[in-house]
Amino acid sequence: MGLLDKEFSDGNIVIAKVDDLMNWARLSSIWQLGFGLACCAIEMMATSASHYDFDRFGVIPRNTPRQADAIIISGTVTLKMATRIKRLYEQMPDPKYIISMGSCANCGGPYWEHGYHVLKGIDRVIPVDVYVPGCPPRPEALLEGLLKLQEKIRNESLRKKIA
């Protein structure tokens, strides 16, 4: 192996498992669908802005579902909107991830009893990877949710999908 060793030490080569490389690439560039619903969306925008800077985790808004990796369901999902969200989700390419942000998206929130127009939890329509509690959650909480999602992606395998 003398020849190969020499090659490697001369050139800038790093050896890694394909799984690790793919996961590292995916979790470091989660492009989220540019999409907001209610007051949680204001917190999400604050998270994107310079003070909290979502971009340092590789999260940038992408305004087409066809090139997005994740949706952050940031707010109250009405029944009317739920049909649209389902369509957006179906238009996204695999692998795709969902963060459910705030009580409304998690379970209906304050609309759980009398909200005749509210879907009581986005997980009734699309599968959720990470739930972020709060009403609305602070930017720190959303960042924590994103780190949890990254952790989930880090442990994925090409042979077996987890998230």
Binding site: L79, A82, T83, C107, G108, W112, E113, Y116, H117, L119, K120, R124, V125
Partner: peptide, 20 residues
């Protein structure tokens, strides 16, 4: 019409369960 006092919410809308 949802704001009528005797309004009853449906069980399902387009396959989505409406009550909590």
């Amino acid at each position: 019409y949802p704001l009528r006092k005797d309004y009853k919410n449906p069980e399902f809308y387009k396959g989505m369960k409406v009550p909590y």
